[in-house]
Design a protein around this nucleic acid. Structure first.
Lengths: 237, 237
DNA sequence: TTGCGCCATATTGCATACAATAATATGCAT
DNA sequence: ATGCATATTATTGTATGCAATATGGCGCAA
């Protein structure tokens, strides 16, 4: 009855309104990898967990499906997305395609204050790398994504920002599934390099570094097609 | 009771299942400009029109909201999106950012058959340009967008394809609102130029042409900020 | 034991009912 | 008439109920 999802989700504040909070909570859980790919998210479970009816739970799950974080199979329910290797490749191809452009845009508009904020993000990232434990690891995952999201935000284009939010979230799923080294610890120094290039207004180098950075993340993935591994998403844990 | 939307929407085939058909029908209506920006889409009206309950109508409207074609205001309802000049700028900035990359990707993978199909799309576009009447105009709008969507499809990246679908659809809204010349008739020849460049595998020229093409569409817009024109979306027609 | 078919159960799909909110109309005082 | 308070109506927000589908268990035959 109660799926394994129960213990990983945090009920929302009762003063909340609507599906937004539920959606955000589940997204966070997925992005921070507290919910494994393939996990079933039943409407009753989600609704019960947040003390709302199935109606709202359903709406939240469908919204997450639009973001590509959840698969909704007709008459079967919603599952945390289980991106195929091909999907994984496309996600990173998309990032290679858009992130240099976003970075260029951001470089044109970035202020001193924002540069400083980026630096702070970096410091925080480094601090988390030093810490131990699940919770620090999760925070590190989030911080690493936030770096890219902040650049998108600085670019000033809300549409690209939302798109990047989708891509970063889905990347997290991909890394959870196919990542080899525990964390892309090299990512931190690469972020630093990008900031440095931004500081000296060297846009081209910044873009190059960004491309390399994405390629490095990708290189850490083992995207070999595992035969029959896809069927019902590895037994629909 | 019956909003002005009624006469512009086509009820779906009764054999349909789910919200998908409703969503597609409304999206088509918006993209083909049979539904003006700002038009209210009440849940009962939409449901009644498609012979489904408000539940499904609501789901369809929320899906459209996620695509940026509809604004849902809490306790007030759903309206065909009315993009602000700033939004319009961002939509086209996003297109300038991604379309060259998509085109490059497409150029690497395009087959002779696909090149031929692109050519056919172009012929059809030209034919429609010659015809008169609302219906031809709508078909022309759609065909013009299909050119860009087909390139995205050829690129082989489903994620970028979906993103482009969103961008093209939203562009249609922007042109409906801010376009000056009746149609970007020059667009046709620009599409032709891009295909020609693709044929001779001249990717760089193709990308340049694409950028210029997007800039030309943008140049036809009058994005001057009209003071107080935004308030409740010009009286929420 | 293995394989198949049937029944019980759980879960989703969808519609409806009720509650909450906003929009509109009415009436009264000025 | 105008402005404001109040009542009425329309529309959305959310929960619940029933039907349809899928899942899992049980028995029976081989």
């Amino acid at each position: 009855m109660n799926s394994s999802a129960d213990m990983f989700l945090t009920p929302s504040d009762p003063t909340d309104t609507g599906t937004q909070q539920i959606r955000d909570a589940i997204r966070d859980a997925i992005v921070e990898r507290r919910l494994a790919p393939g996990t079933k998210l039943s409407e009753s479970d989600v609704g019960g967990l947040f003390n709302v009816s199935r109606t709202l739970a359903r709406a939240a799950l469908q919204a997450l499906a639009y973001e590509g974080l959840v698969n909704v199979e007709r008459n079967r329910g919603a599952f945390v997305a289980y991106p195929s290797p091909e999907e994984a490749r496309q996600i990173f191809a998309a990032r290679r395609l858009v992130e240099p452009g976003i970075l260029k845009s951001a470089a044109e508009r970035i202020t001193a204050v924002q540069l400083k904020q980026l630096g702070q993000l970096l410091v925080e990232e480094g601090r988390l790398m030093g810490e131990r434990g699940q919770s620090a690891r999760r925070a590190e995952i989030k911080a690493s994504g936030d770096f890219h999201l902040m650049l998108a935000s600085i670019s000033g284009n809300l549409i690209m920002q939302r798109f990047m939010e989708e891509l970063v979230a889905r990347s997290s799923l991909v890394i959870a599934l196919y990542g080899q080294s525990s964390a892309s610890s090299c990512g931190h120094s690469e972020h630093a390099g990008i900031i440095a290039a931004l500081e000296r207004k060297d846009v081209n180098t910044a873009c190059d570094l960004m491309l390399h950075h994405i390629e490095h993340i990708e290189a850490d993935l083992d995207l070999r097609e595992r035969k029959g591994f896809d069927l019902r998403q590895a037994f629909e844990r």
